[in-house]
């Protein structure tokens, strides 16, 4: 499938009193048209910053994109003028955040927020925008859309607000939606409703999705391909099947062994990853996962392992990934 988004050597830093935070540290990946990419990793590993960087929503100070390129439909987003990137945002690439309350304007009705977007980006008339807004709310499963359009965000439940956010994201028929923990704040049955909705719409409308989450189950259910992030870098990349059934990076292996699974025997003891993620202001010239890695060797302290092919489109950033396979599978 044709490449929609191509990120190369993206590097985003925060300049804080505690030092320079290497939030996104030489990240490269692609998103094909219409596919769903899962971005997983622990809190603070750079998932949100990497997504915000795509839309150049990193504010200075303290943050800055210091290097790399982000090609979207052939154009480098990092080279666009401010006016040009604003036209890309919302129009071609939309975002859905964890907490819809912070992205919806509390003093405007739902209707006004949607129609304003339609009029601004697509130049629709009031009447056209009203009709389209009703259609959009229907599409995301909100009943009685005419009445809902007159309501304010605080009148709606969390799940309903997230549906509105998705309607807003879809309003300009974007090519790509970046959903940053879109359901983390919601109950499981509502989470399932929202994710099924997003997946269904993405298939029907051919919109590519980047789902950012720390929930390995969500990724297993919804993603075609998966990027695993650790300490600002992608450490493994592959299809969902490869990542879950043939992981090649010790961190991926560790993650899979640490989640309790409903489909497995209850008595099975979890295998946690010892220690904690590193301080992103104090990275050295070695692999950032090394202090927690049971397979670390001397070389890992002196060289950063590059993300390299390990076969069949799968990539891993580990000097020992080729040796790991079997032993790793035995552990997880």
């Amino acid at each position: 499938m044709a490449k929609l988004l191509e990120i190369e050597h993206l590097h985003t830093q925060f300049f804080t009193s505690a030092g320079v935070v290497e939030a996104v540290n030489d990240v490269s990946y692609d998103v094909a048209e219409g596919e769903t990419l899962g971005l997983v990793g622990e809190s603070g590993c750079g998932k949100s910053v990497s997504a915000l960087s795509v839309l150049r929503l990193i504010s200075w100070p303290p943050g800055r994109i210091v290097g790399g390129s982000i090609r979207f439909l052939g154009k480098d987003l990092l080279k666009l003028s401010d006016a040009e990137i604003r036209r890309v945002r919302g129009r071609q690439i939309a975002m859905v955040f964890q907490e819809p309350m912070t992205s919806l304007n509390p003093v405007l009705t739902i209707g006004l927020q949607i129609t304003e977007t339609l009029e601004h980006h697509l130049g629709m008339s009031d009447a056209q925008a009203d009709a389209r807004a009703v259609e959009l709310l229907g599409m995301v499963g909100i009943s009685d859309p005419e009445r809902r359009l007159k309501q304010y965000p605080h009148h709606l439940s969390g799940g309903m607000r997230q549906r509105v956010m998705i309607a807003l994201a879809l309003s300009c028929e974007p090519k790509l939606i970046i959903a940053d923990e879109p359901t983390t704040a919601l109950d499981v049955t509502i989470q399932a409703q929202i994710l099924e909705l997003m997946k269904d719409l993405s298939k029907r409308l051919g919109v590519a999705l980047i789902i950012i989450t720390h929930n390995l189950g969500v990724v297993a259910r919804y993603a075609d391909r998966v990027n695993v992030m650790y300490a600002g870098k992608i450490v493994e990349e592959g299809t969902a099947d490869q990542i879950y059934h043939n992981p090649h990076h010790p961190y991926t292996i560790g993650l899979l062994a640490s989640v309790p699974r409903m489909d497995q025997h209850r008595g099975k003891r979890l295998v946690p990853i010892d220690g904690q993620p590193p301080d992103l202001t104090k990275l050295d010239n070695g692999c950032a996962y090394r202090p927690r890695c049971r397979w670390a060797i001397d070389r890992c302290a002196n060289e950063i392992p590059p993300l390299e092919h390990v076969g069949d489109g799968q990539k891993a950033a580990c000097f020992r990934s080729h040796e790991l396979g079997d032993e790793a599978r035995a552990v997880s």
């Binding site: 439940s157 799940g159 309903m160 109950d187 499981v188 049955t189 509502i190 989470q191 399932a192 409703q193 099924e196 929930n215 390995l216 189950g217 969500v218 990724v219 297993a220 259910r221 919804y222 993603a223 969902a240 099947d241 879950y244 059934h245 899979l256 989640v259 699974r261 409903m262 489909d263």
Partner: peptide, 27 residues
């Protein structure tokens, strides 16, 4: 039943075969 069906399992093969019963409405 709906609650259990809504919880995704960290295994794409199992997920591909599972029935996803989506409970309508809200609490």
């Amino acid at each position: 039943r709906a609650l259990l069906s809504a919880v995704p399992v960290a295994d794409p093969k199992i997920e591909a075969e599972r029935q996803h019963q989506v409970l309508p409405g809200e609490v």
